[in-house]
Amino acid sequence: MGKVMDFLKKLGENRVILPVLLVVGFILTLAISQFAPLEQGLQSVLRELHLNTYVIALVGINVILCASLNLVNGYMGEFSVGHAGFMSLGAYASSIVTVKLLPDMPDALFFFPVIVGGVVAALAGFLLALLSFKTRGDYLAIITLAFLMIVKSALENIPYVGGPRGMLGIPKLTTLAWAFFWAVVTIWVLRNLLYSKFGRAIAAIREDEIAANSMGVRVREAKILAFSVSAFFAGVAGALFAHLLVFATPATFGIFTSTEILVMVYLGGIGSLAGSIIGAVVYTLLSNWLLPLGTWRMVIMPLILVLLMLFRPKGIMGFRELPWFLPKREARRKDS
């Protein structure tokens, strides 16, 4: 056991291997969709593990969701339950692009509708941030909840996007490569943000907003940025999700979806990117493996969460980070 940990530690300290691994991973995921034998090989391996490529892509999407919610709920210490609302905005905005506006768009340009989805969600996040200045804590939770319900209800009343029955005929553009790419981008952007001046500002807000304000932290700017970035990536995840599921209905993005993301965040641990990844991976795979148990699955999953909270209230990682997710200078500082 000790040897394994030592090896992992060494691996973590090696700053060269990470980009290499990422590039190899990306090329692999890209190659899988190009070469049929490779794809079949992967599928037979996954079959042995009781998984399929759909679940793997979902893991990527959940990593994005989990990490981006962690920015607001973990690093900034707010309690937002509206993440599924941003997700649905991203899903719908991107689907409007691919279904209605540019139906003949080449698949390789898929990043464009995804960014559109992200930007639309970010705008909503910006608005919500403006509302959040006056409120905090539980009142902010309720505003995000109301936001979620308003988005769902508004989408249900817009016939252009199919009303309550949702949008159909969305092309299946989300490949493993795209899911992998966006997950890496999310983690990379968040990492760089968190260890910048902005990151320290939101840490200060988490510890004490009033004190931070009086010490000269620009609370408003930090909050707006945190909410917008978090919403942007939720929108990206929503866009990927819609183009994986090939349809989008308002009901898909309800309170239950928000709760699921919350569970992932707190399972993995707040204030930790590694935790977000672990939370998303563990939750997605576990809930897939436990599918045969029917509703008992939904007894077991939250029970794990409750037990975790009781015996390890910060989640698996909780304000700890693997050295890979720290910038170079930060990683060195932690070591000394």
Binding site: Q43, V55, T252, L291
Partner: peptide
């Protein structure tokens, strides 16, 4: 047998699982 829990997204996930994973 796959349970879709009467939810659209889970029905899609189960369809994927049955067709791709269970073949």
């Amino acid at each position: 047998i796959g349970d879709n829990a009467a939810k659209a997204d889970q029905a899609a996930a189960v369809a994927n699982k049955l067709i791709v994973q269970d073949d």
